[in-house]
């Protein structure tokens, strides 16, 4: 019984490495341009987690299954989202407080366009605008906003998990050795 016992290597370490790669390719200026190609940097993180997991596998062990790639990519996405959010929070606190400038200007432009044409402004737009004003004020005063951090974490998790697991699945397809 013991001879047949097989314990697969841990997935946390490769997933953390994948998450770090995702964070590096998402936050470093110029290098983040890689994500212009359909979040290639994030997919690379998912693929890297599969690669490092494969490095841990002893040579005589059975090859990877698709579910391993899916889990590794998704885990790497979760770690990537956490690291990315932490770095963004630090950037907002110490370097840039104009995080919402772009979307605020866009909403303002949309509202003024609608008003100038005599059309009704959707209530949701006004509400979102108020929320952004409140968040901007909070960041201006304290340099940190819990609501914004949670929103960023949720969005980054969704984005990194989706593209991370795609990267993980492609990683299994590309890096998988033929079964004997």
């Amino acid at each position: 019984m013991e001879d047949n016992y097989y314990q697969s290597p841990g997935k946390v370490k490769p997933a953390i490495i994948g998450g770090i790669i995702m964070t590096i390719t998402s936050t470093i200026p110029y290098l983040s341009l890689i994500n212009c190609a359909c979040c290639a940097g994030i997919m690379l993180g998912g693929l890297a987690s599969v690669y490092f997991y494969l490095q841990q596998l002893p040579p005589d062990e059975p090859p990877l299954e698709s579910k391993h790639g899916l889990i590794l990519g998704a885990f790497a996405g979760i770690f990537g989202a956490i690291f990315e959010t932490l770095i963004t929070v630090l950037i907002i606190k110490f370097l840039s407080k104009g995080y919402f400038d772009q979307i605020y200007i866009e909403i303002e432009k949309n509202i003024s366009d609608l008003e100038s044409q005599g059309q009704d402004v959707p209530q949701l737009l006004n509400e979102i605008q108020n929320v952004i004003v409140n968040l901007t004020q909070e960041i201006g005063e304290k340099g940190f906003s819990l609501v914004l951090t949670i929103l960023m974490l949720a969005f980054n998790t969704m984005k990194d998990v989706i593209f991370g697991l795609i990267g993980g699945l492609i990683g299994v397809a590309l890096l998988q050795k033929k079964s004997k």
Binding site: P62, E65, S66, K67, I71, L169, I170, V172, A173
Partner: peptide, 25 residues
């Protein structure tokens, strides 16, 4: 192909068993 195939295999139990049999686990 690889993404759809991978997701189907990951969530479908019968496919996992088939995959495991194929690789001799």
């Amino acid at each position: 192909y690889f993404v759809v195939y991978g997701i189907i295999n990951s969530f479908n139990k019968s496919n996992q068993n088939l995959e495991a049999k194929k690789i001799g686990r």
